[in-house]
């Protein structure tokens, strides 16, 4: 089930999609499934399940802390697939966000097969660019999985074109030059990047959706980003609600719901 399904729906409603991220196994495997389902209920259009990794170079302290907690709790790659299966069963397109080594270790083709049979939509690969990922591209193409590569404000025109041409599902635009984490104000680099990507996609005859991630933490920021992007991607702010709840499940879920509703309101206000 490609994320294209979600974009068809949100485009019909004339709004941007809300993409919500949590790492699998945080705070526990069952806890993350419950939390992700709560995010679906409260208004996320697409879910990103993070695969916790020991060396997350693109993540700031918040997601590092959650991934660390998940790994300490003994989460395995198979638990990530189980989480995807449970969330995808809600009918909401569900992708995995992962650093590359765990996929290579699991077996690229085997992972693609197991992800597809779990009902997963595809992969977001923060440290795998299309020119370094022929094996993943082949495995994803064989199963119609979404290949969501990142573009950055520093991407050259050539790389931007190469990357958007390789994406399926959506293009992930990193709004800032930096790591994940909530920021006080939205980035001034994101708008121009999305505009460049949009022009490039038009030249390629594609209407692929463009999502913007890194830094969004509230409805107002979501509304700003939704004014020019097809999707607003939120990670650290969701993780933060659960970290702040310090193990109190009811408090954490309530905060998660409240944040989702705020953000879902934002993408509808733009």
């Amino acid at each position: 089930m490609s994320t294209a399904k979600a974009f068809a729906a949100t485009r019909a409603e004339g709004r941007a999609a809300l993409v919500g991220y949590l790492p699998a196994g945080f705070p526990t495997v069952e806890g993350s499934i419950e939390a992700l389902k709560a995010m679906v209920d409260a208004g996320c259009d697409i879910i990103e399940v993070g695969l916790p990794y020991s060396d997350p170079v693109m993540d700031g302290p918040t997601i590092q802390a959650a991934a660390h907690q998940a790994l300490e709790g003994g989460v395995h790659t198979t638990d990530v697939l189980r989480t995807v299966e449970a969330v995808a069963a809600t009918g909401t397109p569900t992708v995995v966000m992962t650093y590359w080594n765990p996929i290579e270790r699991y077996g690229v083709d085997r992972f693609a097969a197991d992800l597809a049979s779990a009902g997963g939509a595809g992969l977001i690969t923060p440290d795998l660019t299309p020119d370094s990922g022929p094996e993943w591209i082949a495995a994803a193409d064989a199963r119609d999985l979404d290949k969501i590569f990142l573009i950055a404000p520093s991407s050259t025109d050539e790389r931007l074109a190469m990357t958007t041409a390789a994406c399926r599902g959506f293009v992930y635009a990193t709004a800032v030059m930096g790591v994940t984490g909530a920021r006080a104000s939205t980035s001034e680099l994101a708008g121009p990047l999305v505009a460049r990507a949009r022009r490039t996609l038009e030249e390629q005859g594609s209407d692929l959706a463009i999502g913007v991630g890194l830094g969004v933490s509230n409805g107002q920021q979501a509304a700003e980003v939704a004014s020019y992007a097809d999707a607003v991607i939120v990670g650290s702010a969701f993780v933060r609600t659960l970290l702040d709840a310090q193990g109190d499940r009811a408090v954490g879920l309530a905060a998660l719901r409240a944040l989702t509703e705020d953000l879902a309101g934002g993408v509808r206000r733009a």
Binding site: M58, D127, T129, S132, L150, S154, S155, M177
Partner: peptide
């Protein structure tokens, strides 16, 4: 070998 890095750094690595 190779280059398994975030896109944000690729332009700089090329430079």
């Amino acid at each position: 070998g190779g280059r398994f890095m975030p896109e944000a750094l690729i332009a700089e690595l090329d430079r």
